[in-house]
Design a protein around this nucleic acid. Structure first.
Lengths: 240, 240
DNA sequence: CCCAAGCGAGAGCACCGCTCTCATTTTCCG
DNA sequence: CGGAAAATGAGAGCGGTGCTCTCGCTTGGG
């Protein structure tokens, strides 16, 4: 463990990163389905077999890109949230909407990477344990905002739960946010998945010739999701 | 144009159907990404080149399967709706939930076909005009239920629209359901996409270790979506 | 210093989508 | 009815893919 950390170790990190970089480039151009290990190697001027020293298979390369994408999305969301939170007039609602719009913005900017993480799972079924922390970042952000709103004067969701859902709601609450009321946790998880329904439909073109002013539509829908969770500021309209 | 419609025309229809059937089989086993024209041909005992007489390319085969999937889903939803609607105690809410649960049930039964139509678009970007009518069936069903609720005594969504969204809301209303209030149309489109957010997260495993009693959770979420659209029956709880 | 481990390159396997040619069969029309 | 035209199937072949294996070269640790 010398100061240089070894010439080879350094080279390995750099080449690994170069492969991912080139793969990301091809991903952005053609989409995950067309990503070719050989093409990446060709572009990097190395034999295709050499790439296998760094990624055991094409799917492992994809998995690495998936983790990076989750992290990139998470960072974008967290950055937007903390920026809004720093403002003096920050509210739980404004922070919620900031996160939603950051996720949407990232998805529209990186559609193929979005497809990789929230579209069809690439092979049969794959979600290596390693992706879990990165994947959870957006969800945790939303939970945090709900928690702050819950601590505030306005409280949270009031929609009562049906009897049949109560045990599950209690279980989910214990797992995700023990300090929140079960009604809010259920609403939060629903809003979380619904958020990606809105974004997915936009990214995958389902809103084509249905919704035109998608930014305004999304902002409204995001505000309504916040309202569903019970995030609102005392006595004001649901939108900005 | 004899009574038999020609031996060849009949054979063509049958072989086309056989190819789609075998392709659907492989789709269910391995997913759309791995669907191989050669494998289909091999399984059917014909030369791979012969398949091209029926489908000009692999993507065209996929497109045919996509249209069939949309139709299969649409039929399932319509069947469930009309069955519930025939009951004497049918309400707009019960019909709404029936459609939502039918879509969910179909998606869970046909995950790969669901992925084909609501997951990542398979090639670069593809949505031939021919898929539009089939794709619209579920949306039209939901609009129809909202319309009936609107005609009923309870009315529909009351959430006011922000100023910025009003022009778009009016435009959407003119396109989709001129007889409904714009507030309801906006809520309807949002609920439509959010519905597929819920289902997509479940089918693609995002609820893994988050939601366990997914049927109960979904039923509740679907009821809340109905409530958001303004579909409810006079003076009752939001759930069944 | 020397040997094991890491690494790159090349050849090769089996598969893929797709094209082209050629023989056979069915259909249509004079 | 018979011959031209169209539809169909088989086979070979092209360029591409993921992946494996072997062979030399380089690097690093004992």
């Amino acid at each position: 463990m010398s100061a240089t950390e070894g010439v080879r170790a350094r080279a390995r990190r750099e080449i690994t990163e170069a492969i991912k970089g080139e793969a990301r480039r091809q991903l952005a151009e053609e989409g995950g389905a067309k990503l070719s290990l050989r093409a990446v190697a060709r572009e990097l001027g190395m034999a295709s077999s050499a790439v296998y020293r760094y990624f055991p298979s094409r799917d492992d390369l994809l998995t690495a890109l998936i983790i990076d994408a989750y992290d990139s999305l998470g960072a974008a969301a967290e950055g937007a949230e903390s920026e809004v939170a720093a403002a003096s007039d920050a509210t739980a609602l404004s922070r919620w909407i900031a996160v939603c719009e950051a996720v949407r913005g990232w998805a529209l900017t990186h559609p193929h990477e979005y497809a990789l993480i929230y579209g069809t799972p690439v092979p049969g079924y794959r979600a290596p344990r390693t992706t879990v922390p990165a994947a959870a970042r957006v969800g945790l952000l939303l939970i945090g905002i709900a928690r702050d709103a819950h601590r505030g004067p306005a409280g949270l969701s009031r929609t009562p739960l049906p009897e049949g859902l109560r045990p599950e709601a209690v279980r989910m609450t214990a797992d995700l946010a023990p300090d929140l009321p079960p009604e809010a946790v259920v609403a939060l998880v629903a809003a979380w998945s619904e958020l990606f329904g809105l974004i997915g439909f936009e990214v995958f073109g389902q809103f084509h010739q249905v919704v035109e002013d998608r930014a305004a539509f999304f902002r409204h829908a995001a505000a309504r999701l916040a309202h569903e969770v019970g995030i609102a500021f005392p006595g004001a309209a649901p939108d900005a």
